[in-house]
Structure formats: structure tokens, C-alpha cells
Amino acid sequence: MIYFVLRRSIFAVVLLLIVSAFTFWIFSALPSDPAALTCGKNCRPEVIEANRERLGYDKPLVEQYGAYMKGIFTGRTYGEEGSSIHCPAPSLGYSYDRHECVTSLIASTLPVTASIALGAFVLWMGIGVGLGTLAALKRGKWQDRVATAFSVIGVSLPTFFLGLIFIMVFVIWTGLLPFPRYTGITDNPVEWFMALLLPWFVLAIISAATYVRMTRNGILEVMNEEFVRLGIAKGLPRRRLIVRYVLRAALVPIVTIAGLDFAFLLGGALVTESIFNLPGLGKLTLAAVVNSDLPILVATTMVAAVFIVVANTVVDILYGYLDPRVRVK
């Protein structure tokens, strides 16, 4: 088991190295000149060249990548004494547009995105698995139809549309909630909760739709399994049969997909964060796209990749615990 975890971890590190190199290369291949973006429209060529040298954009790409990777572990100082800028480790570069170290930008936005992702995840798993189970157990009855209708609507609604409707209904028309303004959970938990309630539900409803169908179909499929029939023939009470035999088997594949979906969301919920004005990774990314802030884009892309790779590894390891058939001894 330790060997398995170790092997998976090494694989994950290699994968991340490849992803980082690729990301770095792609963004450097863009036609925009990062040095020219460091100062405004009427910039003198001398300043551009000075900045190019200071930020290291004059070096060959491989060297730039090397300096970047080194910076992650040791921190990085741009420029000579006097006018130098220092970004401590782990340094993910320096944003010439915002004049801030990228790491501190990410450190301030990640908790916001994590708050959104975590709450949405809990809600969507609850709604998705709960409704899906109900639909399967009441197959063909009205509960099933309601769940199916929910999932069709959820799948077909775009995030921005549902988000705007929510704001219109709950904030503008009824005034049940204040307009979302993000507050840190440590500053004011109640305000934090109120601000995130709508984005949680928007993301949850849209994601849950898929999980309702997956859960429903998974359960119905497992119910036809011979071992479930043997469970009934043993005289198992219905509740125990559903939990230990049916749900246990039906949820394994769902857990796998849920882990990846969660990691994807951790990379930033671009649309939702923008609509609800939440200063998370997604909003940071979107602003960086608009301003051609390449260091931020490289960093957010890599952060998202780290989450996906880590989630993949965790899910793989978790799978062994959930299903004895793939357990490694």
C-alpha cells in the first residue's frame, strides 16, 4: 500500500513538471510582449528594455523556466539593489500589472474560492445523491419525475443565467439577502455565510443535476445485481439492504467523479465569482486575461493543474479503500 501511494505520488510530481513546462511555454509563445506591458501606452523604449532585463524576459526560455522553478523553492529577487523587488518562496512570479507578487495574490484569493467550492460541494453531493436515491427508490412515482425534471432543468441552465435570476429574486425583489460582499470567515462568519449562500446554491444546483442522474442510474443498476437479490433472500431489512448493499456499490464511481469535479472547482469558478463579485481565483484569472497579465495566468493555470493532479491521486488511493477488488496489498 505504501509502495502504491509512493508510486502514485512520484507519478503526480512528474506530471506536474510536464504541465508546468507546457504552461510556461504556451504563455511565452503568445504574441504579446510582457516587457512592453509593464508600463503604459506612451512608454519609452529604454524603460521597456530596463524592465525586460529586470524581470528576466531577456533570457532564453529554458533559463526563464529554470529561474521560475527555482523561485518556487527559494524565492526570487527582481532587479538590482535599491530598486529590487523580492518575492519570497514559494514565488510564482511577479505581476507587472498589479505590482504584486503572484503568490500573495493567490494566497489572498484561494480562500475565497475554497469557501465557494467546499460549500457548493457539500450542497451538491447532498442534493444530488439524496434526490438521486429518492428517485431510484420511488422509480416511476412523482418523486422520480420531480427529480428528473430538476436534473433536466439543472443541466440546461447556464451558470450566469441562474446566478442572475437568484440575485434578482433573493436580493432585488424580496430583499431576503444582502447583495453578496465577501467577508473572510475569520472576520465575520455570519456575513461570510450570507455572501456565499447564493453562489453555493447556483453551483450546487447546476452540478447536482448530473449527480441526480448518476446516482439514480447507479442504484437501479446495482439493484439488478445478483448479490442484492441474495441480500433480499437472506431476509435483510430494507434499510440495511439499501445502505450496505445498494448505496455502497452505487456510490463508488460517484465518489471518483466527485473528487475530480471538486478539484476542478477549486481551480476557480470564473463565472460564478464574477457574477457575485467574489474575489477568488476565478475572478483573478479573468482579470488577468483581460489585462494580459501573463505571470498570473501561468500561476493560476498551474494551481488548477495541481488541484486536478492531487485530486486524481487522492481518488486513486481512496478507490482502493472503497473497493476491495482494486485494493493493493
Binding site: L230, G235, R244, R248, R325
Partner: peptide
């Protein structure tokens, strides 16, 4: 019926490869 199942009347199914719960 449930109290009869497995206690008074027990069953053996055709395919032993699928009749046991793989998770326990």
C-alpha cells in the same frame, strides 16, 4: 416474509461470481 427469508427458506443462486457482495 422477511423473517421467513433466509431462516425457514434459503436460496442458492446460479452464479456464485455475482451472488456475493464484493464490498464485504
Amino acid at each position: 416474509v422477511r423473517s421467513v427469508r433466509g431462516r425457514d427458506v434459503a436460496m442458492i443462486f446460479q452464479d456464485p461470481l455475482t451472488a456475493l457482495n464484493p464490498f464485504y
